[in-house]
């Protein structure tokens, strides 16, 4: 029998939970939710077993890109307070392990999705992983203050993936859902970056507040909020939306606009006085905002299924 003590070189044995953490479970949760909504609102029903298997593949694909992102970003993760406890910088998992797990799970999730669902869904999943890891993490994140704008696209794809699993093709509704997350991402992250500014500065990531200053960031948040409103309302006038969605969306957008306006008007003295309270509130609200929009799409699809749709909205898209 081989002497197993010879391979025992590390102080800490990576536990299973450390590998799970490598897959960014919190991001996975969001991916599962939005992909599931994309699948459930699609006009083609999916068998529950196929649905569960496909969502699992999408979640594993997202987790794999998270592991690859952690592998690539291990140098800056070690500098930033928010990320220094991640498995690689804290020494619980070795960089090579993260790379291997990321690559293996990427390949596996794409292949399995091709078998479980269809080739189009698998292709989009592969593209999503490529986009997040290569275009965003390796390419743009450290290069441009617009990193979030383009990087948001990677996080925006899951509802489209869910839709393609069900229908095998793309139409205007999933594109609107992608646009909703895509345009929601910049104000969401810039609000966070406002009070995490020092972190990003230390790591040398060109976040907007680092590069262009706080005032410009506040203007950008407001500008993107204005742009987000029509995009968020648009699904009301497709076959997946309706009156209930429109009503809730109007309310959410009004609150969001008010919050963005408050951020725009705040001076440095204001945020020092309350330690970024309004910025943190805005950040928190953006999460509720996105969650409720997707919840309302589920509500609409339930209403349609029960044939109690109160909608009389025209379908424009």
């Amino acid at each position: 029998m081989a002497d197993v003590s010879s391979i025992d070189t590390r102080e800490h044995e990576a536990q299973f939970g450390d590998y799970v953490e490598l897959l960014k479970p919190r991001v996975m949760r969001l991916v599962v939710f939005t992909a599931l909504v994309g699948m459930l609102v699609a006009p083609v029903p999916v068998h529950p077993v196929i649905a569960v298997a496909s969502i699992l593949c999408i979640a594993i694909g997202a987790g794999a890109s998270g592991a690859l992102n952690m592998w690539w970003d291990r140098d800056i993760d070690a500098v930033m307070k928010r990320t220094m406890g991640r498995p690689i910088p804290s020494g619980r998992v070795q960089a090579g392990e993260a790379l291997a797990i990321g690559l293996a799970l990427s390949g596996l999730s794409v292949m399995m999705l091709a078998v479980f669902a269809n080739l189009a869904a698998a292709g989009w999943l592969a593209f999503t992983i490529f986009f997040y890891v290569v275009i965003y993490s390796i390419g743009l994140k450290r290069l441009t203050p617009q990193n979030i704008v383009i990087g948001g696209a990677a996080g925006a794809f899951p509802p489209l993936l869910g839709w393609v699993v069900a229908t095998g093709s793309i139409s205007v509704e999933p594109v609107l859902l992608v646009a909703l997350i895509l345009i929601w991402t910049p104000p969401h992250f810039w609000a966070l970056a406002l009070w995490r500014n020092e972190d990003y500065k230390a790591a040398g990531i060109p976040m907007l507040p680092v590069m262009r200053g706080e005032r410009v960031t506040r203007r950008y948040i407001f500008g993107y909020t204005l742009w987000l409103i029509p995009v968020a309302l648009a699904p009301s006038f497709t076959q997946i939306g309706g009156m209930a969605y429109l009503a809730v969306s109007l309310l959410l957008n009004a609150v969001l606009l008010l919050g963005a306006w408050r951020l725009l008007k705040r001076q440095e003295a204001d945020r020092d006085a309350d330690n970024f309270r309004a910025e943190k509130q805005f950040f928190g609200f953006t999460i509720v905002y996105l969650f409720l929009h997707f919840m309302m799409l589920l509500v609409e699809s339930t209403l349609r299924a029960l044939d109690v749709s109160i909608t009389a909205l025209p379908i424009w898209f």
């Binding site: 077993v49 196929i50 298997a53």
Partner: peptide, 8 residues
Amino acid sequence: MIFAVSIV
């Protein structure tokens, strides 16, 4: 899971 999907 693969077994279940195959059956379905």
